[in-house]
């Protein structure tokens, strides 16, 4: 039984120019102890789908789903207070900007203790002790001293560690990390990724890693879901995805990586991601796809079976990535 199970999730935003579908029919499944990476460019709806599942979207958003269960509980029918009990204790989230996710007015120690007080029945002393433990767990040197520091006195990497400490404070079953290392330097990113995967392995948590960095995906994820313009276009185990992408978008994305370049000119994906006012008919990727034909431009593509990477495509690719890129 999957830890998080989302079927046919759609999110619509009411905007000035009418309603905008940010997420369209996305399925997400995460097992306990699994690292799922959700990859996509900006506007692919990768963060929105997770925020929607957690009920953290503003009122302008309309969320619909056929199924939305976490650990057997249906999240759709939970009252806000019951939902709050689940989110924060059993599901935790960390965000891209560690500096702005922490409240600059309070010490990090206070904020960790606050997170503990929200969900666990601990007295003051126990909270303090637990906070110290957590700081040690996330590898913050001299934790006693750092507990009394304010966020602006710590570096970005340290703040992200504090965020992680707060996220794992109540022993969550699922951790959602939204671009956790994008704002950090490469050497710090390596530290944080090691920390996250280590914690995930030790606690047997599910981890959803939302990112746009293919390198991070390749090194940390077990399974990858690729999103494009609100669609999930492909879902495969990480090795298979990098070896044999089935959706042309995934293939083109991998080919565009500078480190995979074979010649001086990089293979490109022409055009830009469709926005609110230029959604094509048929397949959303068809205007930029090298393989698109009239059927792609007029008919919505089906979802292929798992052996074809659940690719949302009329003509999924079969051959390994390197040949497709040519």
């Amino acid at each position: 039984m999957a830890l998080l199970n989302i079927r046919n999730l759609s999110v619509d935003f009411a905007t000035g120019g009418g309603s905008f579908r940010a997420v369209d029919g996305v399925d997400v499944t995460v097992e306990a102890g699994e690292v799922l990476a959700i990859v996509g460019e900006s506007g692919s709806g990768k963060s929105v789908s997770m925020l929607a599942a957690m009920g953290l979207l503003p009122w302008t958003a309309t969320v619909t789903a056929d199924e939305l269960t976490f650990d057997g509980k249906d999240l759709r029918n939970l009252s806000p207070s019951a939902r709050r009990k689940v989110i924060g204790r059993d599901v935790a989230m960390i965000f891209q900007e560690p500096m702005s996710s922490l409240n600059p007015c309070f010490t990090v120690g206070f904020q960790i203790r606050e997170a503990l007080a929200q969900h666990l029945n601990l007295d003051r002393a126990a909270r303090k002790k637990r906070a110290l433990e957590l700081m040690e767990m996330v590898g913050i040197p001299a934790p006693e001293k750092r507990l009394n520091a304010f966020p602006h006195q710590l570096s970005g990497g340290m703040n992200q560690r504090v965020m992680i400490a707060m996220a794992i404070a109540c022993g969550p079953k699922l951790l959602i990390a939204d671009e956790p290392t994008t704002a950090l330097d490469v050497t710090i990113q390596a530290q944080i990724l090691d920390l996250l995967t280590g914690l995930q392995r030790d606690a047997g948590m599910g981890l959803i890693l939302i990112t746009h960095d293919m390198g991070v995906v390749a090194e940390t994820a077990h399974r990858v879901a690729v999103q494009y313009a609100g669609w999930k276009v492909e879902d495969q185990p990480v090795k298979d995805l990098f070896q044999t992408p089935h959706h042309p978008y995934t293939a083109a994305l991998l080919a565009a990586l500078p480190e995979r370049a074979t010649e001086r000119r990089l293979p490109t994906i022409p055009g830009v991601v469709p926005g609110q006012f230029d959604r094509p008919q048929g397949c959303l990727f068809s205007p930029r796809c090298a393989f698109a034909d009239d059927r792609c431009r007029s008919t919505l593509p089906p979802v292929q079976p798992p052996e074809l990477g659940r690719a949302r495509c009329h003509y999924p690719l079969m051959a390994p990535a390197t040949e497709e890129a040519q």
């Binding site: 490469v186 050497t187 990113q189 390596a190 990724l193 960095d213 293919m214 390198g215 991070v216 995906v217 390749a218 090194e219 994820a221 990480v238 090795k239 990098f242 070896q243 991998l254 990586l257 480190e259 995979r260």
Partner: peptide, 12 residues
């Protein structure tokens, strides 16, 4: 160290 820390898009 910098080269080694840079994630590579190759899971194998």
């Amino acid at each position: 160290a910098l080269l080694s820390a840079t994630p590579s898009a190759d899971p194998t």
